[in-house]
Design a protein around this nucleic acid. Structure first.
Length: 745
DNA sequence: TAACAACGCTTTTTT
DNA sequence: AGCGTTGTTA
């Protein structure tokens, strides 16, 4: 092309420019954290469109999350002056598969109006099948079966292709359920997340002419977060990529954090083998973080083996050192964090740019409570998904049933909500007949209204319900979906049920239903709404307003913030105990990559912290027992101290009280933490924690007692940490103040 | 059938 | 501690 570089190329460095301008053939971009990979991808798409190398609908661009997809759409729109839907085939593997499947549903025996089941529906269906197949759910937990089915689907395996060892009873039963499960889904005209991709694979394999439609159409393919794609997603890409091999993937082996979903780092290595003459470009300059943050991250990740090896560098200045703070317990940690925010950060940064990233979702709770108490606005991203809340699911199931009578799960959910005196016995009867005749619960109910099997009283309430559903169905043909929801909630008695409850939870539920009504307005009709919500993780306006962000590290992938807090860096929590137990060192390496992702989210300020004592669920044998001493994460030791400022002394506890301006900020969404807090306030449950500060000077060889671990002998002392060989639980490191000397001389 | 008590399990990470 | 599942009673 004989023209000067367009403007958008001027802001790129040489490697980035090379990646954008690369023309034909496979391209692998190894992009370090903060090296501008989104910029490269969006600019590459814009460049393809601007230079007319193809039409915008001939570009396939796959991202990992909807959030990433939306951001890319916006950025491409800005670069090209087109609207944000200029690239129609930009989305997640699941959303693009959904689009394909809606068009060719018949090829796998589905109707295009199929419903996408979420994890809860899936679990419920599996439980039903376990019951129907007389499999004991104690020996065959529905969760295991669901997990196993998912794993099989991630490997593109359908029941006939699966071989299970004859001694592996759990998997034999899981396979049995899998078969029935797929049949039931078909009858119900439903799919699960895995099916979206799996059905596409089946279609591509069985119908070459359909496969060719896509192969021929997509002139350029781009894949983001390639290190986190799994087997079936790679297969999917393979089947859709034409001989031109114009496939460009971006990935970072150090940020591979989804192996539990079947992702393999080796996909990056294999890319070169799968696609001949792959061009490789490394993006190693970081444009995000200060040197102190970047170097801390590098020192940590250097403890991993089998890395492709990149040299990430930055010409930013050193910035502040990374703080490592130690706190007495989780509550102190939350106080300490909020203190730093109020005293150090609030005057220099927008609080939208402050983020607290945790290993597991429940860890946000302590911070939520603290922020509510002192009146700092916050948002929880991810967490309990809006569409999975009970009241939202109930409402959706009414709509799902109106839309599709074969949706047994929806029918089952609403048949007795609100209470209509149609209990388990009745439902069981309907189930049996439905199974015998291979019909849906709804159709079976219709038939059973004429029969004698049901008691007259239950028959009456069932008749009423069916009559209502029929009326709503009729109504839905002529009027809007929002009005339909209102009518359904009103006439079903659902709203009345909640209003009669008069509890704070019920109020929050009514609020949530209002929220649902508002979000429905973003869709033009019922079908469009139902087709899209299943793939939506949360409501979109999340980012509005000035709020501190709380989320898991996984959810923070691809995001960046000026200030980042990383609390809970304790052995067992991070790296997580389960991951260590399940897969040992391999898993610890993945946890380490997760820690690396977490650190590299920060641009200017980073605060890592741990608590010396952590409250945890369960084992309330006595009141002291729900506190466990904890040890700093091994990842803290692995950070190069030159870049750190370590505060060994725990934050001093200060007198904590409710501020009068409590809750003056606009907390539009009622998060679970908020609800819990309200309930606790009502119960006037004030929690106080008492500490005993009488440190004892132990010596090696002393026999001591620990509240949790019992008796043992001290074999090593390191400051206030004592290594003890316990009679019952073996060697453990604990903190001295939890020990009592036993006089056995 | 509904309301209530007892029990046991939970918390990794997500499309 | 909190939630869902199971058992007991009216």
């Amino acid at each position: 092309m004989n023209q000067a570089y367009p403007n958008y190329l001027n802001t790129l460095n040489n490697q980035q420019k090379e990646a954008v301008l690369h023309q034909e053939g496979p391209l692998l971009i190894l992009a370090g954290a903060g090296s501008g990979k989104t910029k490269v991808l969006t600019t590459r798409v814009a460049h393809l469109i601007e230079t007319k190398q193809c039409f915008s609908n001939q570009i396939l661009c796959v991202t990992f999350t909807n959030k990433a997809a939306n951001e890319m759409k916006e950025r491409i729109a800005k670069l090209t002056n087109l609207n944000s839907n200029a690239v129609p085939w930009l989305g997640t593997f699941h959303s693009i598969s959904n689009k394909i499947l809606r068009k060719y549903a018949e090829a796998v025996g589905l109707k295009p109006s199929f419903t996408i089941l979420d994890t809860l529906d899936q679990l419920k269906l599996i439980k039903n099948i376990l019951a129907a197949e007389n499999l004991d759910p104690k020996h065959n937990p529905a969760k295991f079966v669901a997990y196993q089915i998912d794993q099989w689907k991630n490997k593109a395996l359908l029941p006939p292709e699966i071989k299970v060892s004859s001694s592996d009873f759990m998997r034999i039963n899981a396979l049995k359920v899998y078969k029935v499960y797929q049949e039931r889904l078909r009858v119900m005209n439903c799919v699960d997340f895995g099916d979206l991709i799996l059905h596409c694979i089946t279609i591509f394999k069985n119908f070459k002419e359909i496969q060719n439609v896509f192969k021929k159409n997509f002139k350029y393919i781009l894949v983001d977060e390639f290190q986190d794609t799994n087997f079936i997603q790679n297969l999917w890409l393979n089947l859709i990529t034409d001989n031109h091999n114009n496939i460009c993937v971006v990935g970072d082996d150090d940020q591979s954090i989804y192996s539990w979903r079947g992702a393999e780092v080796k996909n990056i290595l294999d890319f070169e083998k799968n696609y001949q003459k792959t061009k490789i470009i490394k993006l190693e300059q970081n444009y995000r973080s200060t040197k102190n943050i970047l170097n801390s991250a590098s020192s940590l990740i250097s403890n991993n083996e089998d890395r492709l090896g990149k040299k990430i560098w930055s010409d930013f200045n050193d910035g502040e050192k990374v703080w490592v703070n130690s706190y007495g317990d989780g509550r102190d940690e939350a106080i300490g964090v909020s203190d730093i925010i109020e005293k150090e950060l609030i005057n220099h940064f927008s609080i939208n740019n402050i983020s607290i990233l945790v290993r597991a979702a429940f860890q946000t709770r302590e911070f939520e409570e603290r922020f509510i108490r002192i009146g700092l606005p916050y948002r929880v991203i991810g967490g309990t998904k809006f569409y999975e809340r009970a009241e939202i699911k109930d409402a959706l199931c009414y709509l799902r049933l109106i839309h599709q009578k074969s949706d047994d799960l929806a029918f089952e959910r609403i048949i007795n909500t609100p209470k209509r005196s149609i209990g388990d016995t009745t439902l069981q009867k309907i189930h049996e007949v439905a199974r015998k005749n291979n019909k849906s619960l709804y159709d079976t109910s219709l038939e059973m209204l004429d029969g004698e099997e049901l008691k007259p009283k239950t028959k009456d309430s069932l008749k009423n319900l069916i009559k209502l559903i029929q009326q709503w169905t009729k109504f839905s043909k002529n009027l809007g979906h929002v009005e339909l929801l209102e009518k359904v909630l009103d006439e079903s008695g659902y709203t009345t049920m909640l209003m009669n409850e008069k509890s704070p939870e019920a109020d929050a539920r009514l609020e949530n239903l209002k929220e649902l009504r508002i979000s429905m307005k973003n869709y033009s009709n019922l079908i469009e709404f139902l087709e899209n919500i299943s793939l939506q993780t949360a409501i979109d306006e999340e980012w509005e307003g000035e709020k501190i962000n709380l989320m898991t590290i996984h959810a923070a992938k691809g995001l960046e913030f000026e200030c980042v807090f990383l609390p809970g860096w304790e052995e067992g929590m991070f790296p997580h105990q389960k991951s260590i137990e399940e897969k040992g060192d391999i898993a610890v390496q993945e946890e380490r990559r997760l820690a690396y992702v977490a650190i590299t989210r920060a641009k200017k300020r980073l605060f890592i912290s741990f608590a010396n004592n952590r409250k945890f669920f369960g084992s309330a044998k006595n009141d002291n027992n729900d506190w466990m001493p904890s040890l700093p994460s091994r990842f803290i030791d692995e950070l190069d101290k030159t870049y750190l400022k370590i505060n060994e002394i725990a934050e001093e506890k200060f007198n904590d009280f409710d501020f009068a301006q409590d809750l003056t900020f606009n907390q539009s969404k009622k998060s679970p933490g908020w609800q819990r807090y309200q309930e606790e306030k009502i119960k006037e449950k004030v929690k106080t924690i008492n500490y005993t500060n009488n440190l004892t000077n132990f010596k090696i060889g002393h026999t001591v007692n620990h509240e949790t671990f019992g008796n043992g002998k001290i074999i090593h002392i390191d400051g206030n940490k004592v290594l003890i060989n316990f009679k019952n639980v073996g060697e453990k490191k604990v903190i001295d103040k939890y020990l009592q000397k036993i006089d056995n001389e």
